[in-house]
Write a protein that binds this DNA or RNA. Structure first.
Lengths: 203, 203
DNA sequence: ATGTGATTTAACCATTTAGTTAAAATGATT
DNA sequence: AATCATTTTAACTAAATGGTTAAATCACAT
């Protein structure tokens, strides 16, 4: 195999991501990552000299998913509400594909915000353009006025929170009925879109 | 001092809560808790034989705060929308008093949901009555129809998420301007209430 | 003053864990 | 066959950490 090198590295990254997301930086064990990757600890350190280096490598890839380029959608020149609906759809698609991301991101952010800040800076993520677009729509009277940050945080909260809190929701709100909870999550897309549209509609 | 015993125990509990909330179960160190309580490790173990016992003791007290009896407000016979606004106010008051709770609860829930489930069961917390009250208001046409769980989770998400994500919000949305972020959080109460009321209003 | 429980001190144990090392094995390439 | 990076094995170090212990000290009530 030509790419055995990349193959092993990929196996490590997959395993590390899975273990880090489940256990967090503190709870994850290098041995467990090695086991999950089907290799031994020595080789793990042969590829990534330290746990921190490995974690940073994983974190970078995770943030790419967790802070997606919704901006792309928002910049297009469609109708504002249409763009908003598209952005919510796109964001929830990502969350359904990576349901454990919210808990992980919130966990690690509270442990050490600087790690995230550094990576976000490095990726040049900048929401100011999105805020501007929202303000313009408000100025044109298309939606109700508020600080654009509130609208963005409201939407992200509506999307993200249920995923981070799923174990509690499943137990408290659905009596541990996994199917009912699944159904609830399937409904979220429509519910959030309607909820948001109603709340920003100009009467 | 008559209550030197309780005094030390209180000091330990305060210190433990503070350290556990900052670092989580995994990240917290018994030595750090002892230091923060102004005592030594031996005495700490003299009061709580193990880290787990101490953590469970703290967790019980924390859950009492984190899962408050909003039900009390919702059960009163005021107008439904009035009750909803009161509940949001009460919930946000708690969050402002304990801003680090959301991150902690979400962190530990994702680490081991069972711990929470056991404690919730023990406290007999039951949201079914609240769901029923919401459904009744919907049936009376006072608010728009949806699965009551969605409304509850929407509101909790709007309230809780910003606190859990505060470090990111401060950096990404407010360029590390702490004052602007504080102002943003002060506005949340009014914003959430208006946002929710608009979204459930029957047209 | 004496006994009692609370508290300190300081050394200690056992375990876990990140990380290292060196030698051997594997396996593809030339 | 010889070379080279990759991988394994297995033992190891060093540090951190939860928890223990025993002796000494302190404060207070009888």
């Amino acid at each position: 195999m030509i790419d055995k090198k990349e193959n092993t590295e990929e196996k490590i990254i997959d395993a590390a991501r899975s273990v880090f997301i489940k256990k967090g930086m503190d709870g994850a064990r290098m041995q467990e990552i090695a086991d999950e990757a089907g290799i031994n600890k020595a080789l793990l350190h042969y590829y990534f000299r330290s746990k921190e280096k490995l974690f940073d490598a994983i974190l970078g890839k995770i943030i790419k998913v967790a802070f997606p380029k919704i901006s792309g959608i928002m910049v297009s020149d469609a109708d504002f509400k249409t763009k908003l609906v598209q952005a919510i759809d796109a964001y929830l698609d990502i969350l359904f594909k990576h349901p454990y991301l919210p808990a992980f991101v919130l966990k690690e952010v509270s442990r050490d915000p600087n790690v995230f800040i550094k990576i976000i800076v490095k990726r040049g993520l900048n929401p100011k353009l999105v805020f501007k677009i929202i303000e313009d729509a408000m100025d044109r009277g298309e939606i109700v006025k508020m600080k654009p940050q509130h609208l963005v945080i409201n939407i992200i909260g509506l999307c993200v929170f249920p995923f981070a809190a799923r174990p509690i929701i499943e137990f408290v709100a659905f009596d541990e009925d996994k199917k009912a909870t699944d159904q609830f999550f399937k409904e979220r897309k429509a519910v959030i879109k309607e909820f948001v549209l109603r709340s920003i509609e100009v009467k």
